[in-house]
Computed example of a mutant assay.
Amino acid sequence: MRCTKCGNISWDHISICNTCGEDLTEVQKQLGQFPQPEPDFSWFQDLVTETQPPEATPSVDLSEIDVSDLIVGEEEELGDSDIDIDIKEIEDVIEDEELQKVLEKSLEP
């Protein structure tokens, strides 16, 4: 059924438009009586099971994983000397015309 106010198409048994709230009872009367859906109807009712899926359990005991190399301690804090930056590589990236075109295109509205 099409709403007379906004044109939204909805189910024939709906008496109020979901989009604009228009009362559609007059349109329903003109079209005739339509069967009402079952209140507990579900397209997937045959697929739904009453049992819950088993809880996921990790296949590995997480306590056995060594993550010590991922933790930076106070004595191992990164300093400027640990970072190796090649200024020439940065300049090459900045001067790359293909990259600049891609960046400009991605920033366009």
Rank of each mutant, 00 (worst) to 15 (best):
L78P: 12
D23Q: 01
D40K: 08
G73E: 15
L47N: 08
E104N: 15
D96N: 15
C6F: 06
F41N: 12
Q52E: 15
F34D: 12
P54Q: 10
L70H: 08
F34G: 08
V102N: 03
D40C: 04
L70F: 04
C3E: 12
Q30R: 08
K5W: 12
L70K: 05
Q30E: 15
E55N: 09
M1V: 06
L70V: 01
T25D: 01
P109L: 06
T51F: 04
I83G: 01
W11A: 06
Q30G: 07
D96F: 00
R2H: 15
D92K: 10
D96G: 05
D61K: 12
P54Y: 02
E26R: 02
D80Y: 05
E97H: 08
T51M: 07
Q100S: 10
I83Y: 13
Q52I: 04
I16D: 11
W43S: 07
I90L: 01
E97A: 05
L47E: 15
T51S: 12
E77R: 12
L62F: 10
E108S: 09
S42Q: 13
L107T: 04
L99G: 06
M1N: 06
I65V: 11
T19K: 01
I65D: 14
D82E: 00
I14R: 05
I9W: 09
V102D: 14
V93G: 07
N8Q: 09
C17H: 01
V102T: 10
G32V: 08
D96T: 01
T57H: 14
C20I: 04
G21A: 03
T57V: 04
S106H: 13
S63P: 11
D96P: 13
P35V: 00
S63A: 11
Q52G: 07
E38Q: 10
Q100N: 15
Q36W: 03
F34W: 12
Q45T: 01
K5D: 15
Q33I: 03
P53M: 03
L78F: 01
F41Q: 14
D92Y: 00
P37L: 03
S10M: 05
D86R: 04
E77H: 01
D66C: 04
I9F: 10
E89S: 02
L103S: 09
Q33L: 10
F34K: 10
I65Y: 01
K105N: 11
D96S: 07
G7I: 05
P35T: 02
D61H: 11
E91V: 12
E38T: 03
P58F: 07
I65F: 09
E64F: 05
S42E: 15
Q36G: 03
E50D: 02
